[in-house]
């Protein structure tokens, strides 16, 4: 009987821990969002974080976007050429990218590159007592450390997604037009006719904005809430990538159903 009771108690404790963690993450998000910005001190911090979170993620975004656009064009061509509709490659590449692949893949890459770095950085600051010393100096680390990183991630991901789409389309053009010989006029005209700014581009950016919020929220929370040991940071970094990736894929399905589902 005792082992059963112990298991139930363990389950209950684990449930309470999860609820408490959700509560703490909500508090952190609330502080990051409502923190009174001090333009003189906050703006340079935000710029520095935009550089390390956004600008330094550009290489991986550009290279990935280029290859994904090229692969899409190649796959699309081999499929469409059988039906004599290879002119639609541009349309296929653009729609796939702006609606789905750019927001999702850019967010997954962002979680792996910038999210894990944010978690590790904040976790290490906690381990080395830098956050505690900041508190004792009378500076709230949620405003000084967490808020600029959160806003930098929130702002960066939609921009990175746009770059991903643009480079991907260019990669598709390189393969489709320059290599496989699709007529350039048809490539661009089909794309222009089929891609709607609000239905496709804006909806894709809304997805990117939601992913930016979720990934950065998970990353800063995991870092701030990490156990201050080397193992704790390792676990927190892993959790950031796993939770962010699952959240991106799950939310993508829900948003796709809401935006593009015709029920």
């Amino acid at each position: 009987m005792q082992p059963v009771l112990d298991s139930i108690a363990l389950l209950g404790r684990s449930g309470l821990d999860k609820v408490a963690a959700i509560g703490r993450s909500g508090m952190i998000l609330a502080h990051a969002i409502v923190a009174r910005p001090d333009p003189v001190q906050s703006f340079p911090l935000l710029i520095r974080q935009l550089y390390s979170v956004g600008v330094q993620s550009m290489i991986i975004i550009i290279v990935s976007g280029l290859f994904i656009g090229m692969v899409l064009a190649l796959q699309g061509y081999t499929l469409l050429v059988d039906y004599g509709t290879e002119q639609a490659v541009g349309q296929m590449v653009a729609l796939s990218l702006v609606r789905e692949l750019a927001p999702v893949v850019a967010a997954l890459l962002f979680a792996g590159r910038a999210g894990s770095a944010l978690t590790a950085e904040i976790g290490l600051m906690k381990t080395t007592e830098q956050l505690s010393s900041m508190e004792m100096i009378g500076v709230d680390p949620l405003r000084r450390i967490i808020a600029p990183r959160f806003w930098a991630g929130f702002i960066s991901l939609p921009i990175l997604t746009m770059i991903f789409s643009a480079v991907g389309i260019w990669g598709g053009m390189l393969v489709g037009v320059e290599w496989l010989g699709i007529y350039e006029g048809s490539f661009w005209a089909n794309m222009q006719n089929s891609v709607d700014f609000f239905d496709d581009v804006v909806n894709g950016l809304i997805k990117a904005q939601v992913f930016g919020l979720v990934v950065t929220w998970v990353a800063v929370f995991q870092g701030y809430d990490s156990i201050p040991t080397s193992e704790g940071i390792s676990q927190a970094t892993t959790k950031t990538v796993v939770y962010s990736s699952l959240a991106i894929l799950g939310l993508d399905f829900i948003m796709t159903a809401l935006m593009f589902g015709d029920f």
Binding site: T128, E129, Q130, S132, S133, M134, E135, M136, G138, D140
Partner: peptide, 23 residues
């Protein structure tokens, strides 16, 4: 409260065991 606590901490200085300098 949280903000009052941060105000009171201006009266304190603390030397941490590790130094805890901002790296």
């Amino acid at each position: 409260g949280r903000s009052e606590l941060f105000d009171v901490r201006e009266k304190m200085g603390m030397l941490f065991q590790s130094g805890a300098l901002f790296t």
